[in-house]
Amino acid sequence: MTFLPYAVSAWLFLVGLFGVVRSRNLIHLVVCLSVVQASTYVLLLAVGYRHGGAAPIFADVPLGSRTVDPVVATLTLTDVVVEATVVALLLALAVQAHKRFGTLDPDQLGAMRG
């Protein structure tokens, strides 16, 4: 019974969230959010792992050998693409916030509105 990879995933999630809450810069906040999202990659790949399993790519692995789950690998790929798009959109919003308010500090954004 080993749960270490799951614990790593939970830790990444919490430490990323901590960074988001503490952040004083929108760019830093986006990077922290990507740490939160990284926890889901660890979780997905950990769930699909099988002891002694090779990658499910039979380029040099003999057919019929024990492999890890290919479905979670595909889900992780989707996850990575979604993260990239979220980061791109948030960075564009950060650029806009900086133009509008002249600051990247999330605490200052509301105060500058007047």
Partner: peptide
């Protein structure tokens, strides 16, 4: 969750 390394997903298999 199943213990790390003991996953047995029918779909992936």
């Amino acid at each position: 969750l199943p213990s790390f390394g003991d996953f047995d997903g029918a779909y992936g298999t």
